[in-house]
Amino acid sequence: MSILVDKNTKLLVQGITGRDGSFHTRQMLNYGTTVVAGVTPGKGGVEVEGVPVFNSVAEAVKKTHANTSIIFVPAQFAASAVYEAIDGGIKLIVCVSEGIPTIELVKITAYMKDKNCRLIGPNSPGLVSAGDAKVGILPGHIFKKGSVGVISRSGTLTYEIVDHITKVGLGQSTCIGIGGDPIIGTKFIDCLELFAHDKETAAVVVVGEIGGRDEQDTAVYVKKHFKKPVFGFIAGKTAPPDKRMGHAGAIISGTSGTAAEKIKVFKECGIKVGDTPAEVAQLVKSTVKD
C-alpha cells in the first residue's frame, strides 16, 4: 500500500507537448507510471512518447479513464488548467507550475469545495510511491520501497532527505512534495490523515520551512491524533525576516513563521527534529526497522 498514487494511477499530463511536459512524461513512463493521456488544447491527435494527446481533459478522461492529472503549463494558464481538470472529473490533480498568483488559489480552493477531488501544489515537485508510481519531477533513482512517509514543502531538499533515508538502509512508502506557495491544495495534516490509515507507513518525516503556521498546526495535530512516530526538519534557521527565500510562501512576516518557533512547537508536541538532513535520517533509523 501507499497513499495517493499507486499501480492503479492512470495519469493524464496537462501541457504534455511542452518542454517540461514531454521530458517528464518520459521520465514518469521510465519509472513505471501508467501515463494514459496528454492534453494540450489545439494539439489533439498527436502522440508524445507514445501517449495520445487530446484537446480537452473531458475528452481524455472519456477515452482513457484517467483518474490523476499532472499540470506542467505556464503559470498564466495553470489556474485554468486546474479548473479544467476539476470539471473533467479528475480525482487527484498535481500542479507543478510555479508562479500562480495567490488569489487564484483562494478561488480554486472555493471552487473545489464539495467536489470529490484533491489538489497537490501548486509549485510542487509531485509525489512518488516508491516502486509503484511517480507523478512529478522527482528523480526516481533515489527512492527505495519501504515504510517511511515523507511530506515536504520543498523539492531538492526533499531529494536530499529521501537520499539520506535510503542510504541509512530504509525505504519510503509515499513521498509528497506539497508545494512552496502560500496557499496549497493539500497540507501536511491532510497527508498525515492518509498516512494514518496506510498500513505500509510506519513513520513520517515532515520537512517544513519558514513562513506561515502550517508546521505549528501540524505539530498540534500530531500530538492529538497521530499515532505513528513523526520526525521533522525545518529549513531557514538563518533566514532574515521579511525576505522571500525563493518560495513564495517562505517568508518570515515580522517575527512570525520563524524556524525557531516551528522547531519549538515540533519538540513540544513530541516530534523529533533533526538539525541537519543527515541527522533526520539517523533519527528515523533509530526508531524504524524496515
Binding site: 526533499t158 531529494y159 512552496g180 519558514i210 531557514g236 534557521k237 538563518t238 533566514a239 525563493g246
Partner: peptide
C-alpha cells in the same frame, strides 16, 4: 532549490 538553499545556509 529554495529549501535546499536554506538548509545549506543553516
Amino acid at each position: 532549490g529554495a529549501g535546499l538553499a536554506m538548509a545549506t545556509m543553516d
